[in-house]
């Protein structure tokens, strides 16, 4: 398989003194620094990295939580509306006392309690085209977890335009998929879906698959942002929990893709 460059934006920036890990941070991340996990340099790359996760429901919630706990320096979450009871079969960032309260505000407050070394920002709505692009230019990675293809394709387009890696995490019932995109080097989401396929916003879902796929997305994000491990560049990974089956597909770019065909 052709070598894929890791996040060029991160590697271009030399570490500054404030990017070094403090003794407290080294203690916090002690269990994830060492053989088979991250190097100190990788953990420091995480510290000076940023990620946008939208939305932060069943999948985006665990993804944001794992990035925050893992030490990504700046975590930006976007999610509109208020918590409702049906969220709670899969929402890990909120609980019963949060019902009726604004999701973004509650979830960001919870994330801050999990890691004081991470800056957490909240956006209380779903970004439109212009805002998605503006946000993409301010972060190093986007993880897309919205319930519609229209939003996913918008975020994919923003990431491709900004030249940053993009992870699409999706689910239905007891199954889920991940697509990991390096713009200009691998297929993007629009290579797969030139037009948004039909999809229902109120889809069936079991919380265990949400957390599984969200955590897998976070792991891909940690590998990409730390520069450690082998990200699933250009792959679609499907985990069918009901049938107990994992499939992996090498995605092909489309030369006529409106989004990335010119890269």
């Amino acid at each position: 398989m052709e070598a894929i460059n890791d996040s060029p934006r991160l590697s271009e920036e030399p570490p500054q003194p404030q990017d070094r890990l403090s003794p407290e941070e080294l203690k916090r991340y002690d269990r994830q620094i060492g053989p088979g996990v991250l190097t100190v340099a990788g953990q420091e790359r995480l510290k000076r990295a940023s990620a946008l996760i939208t939305r932060v429901g069943g999948m985006g919630g665990p993804a944001a939580l794992m990035l925050t706990m893992g030490g990504v320096g700046r975590v930006v979450i976007a999610h509109g509306g208020e918590m409702i009871s049906p969220d709670l079969n899969r929402q890990v960032l909120g609980s019963e006392p949060d019902l009726g309260k604004p999701r973004a505000e509650q979830f960001s407050a919870y994330l801050r309690t999990m890691n004081r070394f991470v800056e957490v920002e909240a956006i209380d709505h779903e970004p439109d085209d212009a805002e998605a692009l503006e946000l993409a230019r301010q972060v190093d990675l986007i993880i897309a977890c919205p319930p519609t293809f229209a939003e996913r394709l918008r975020l994919n387009r923003a990431a491709v335009s900004a030249g940053i890696p993009f992870i699409d995490a999706a689910q239905w019932g007891m199954t889920g998929t991940l697509v990991v995109v390096q713009p200009g080097q691998t297929a993007c989401l629009e290579c797969l879906y030139p037009a948004a396929p039909p999809f229902e916003e109120l889809f069936p879902v079991v919380g265990a698959i949400s957390a599984t796929i969200g955590s897998m997305a976070a792991l891909e994000g940690i590998k990409i942002l730390s520069g450690e491990g082998q990200p699933l560049w250009g792959q679609l990974l499907s985990y069918d929990g009901r049938q107990g089956r994992i499939s992996q597909i090498n995605l092909q770019r489309r030369a006529d893709c409106d989004c990335c065909g010119n890269l």
Binding site: G57, G58, G60, C145, F149, Q171, T175, F199, F203, I249
Partner: peptide
């Protein structure tokens, strides 16, 4: 032969 019907749930 793998067939994956698109999923978008979040």
């Amino acid at each position: 032969l793998t067939l994956i019907a698109p999923v978008a749930g979040g």
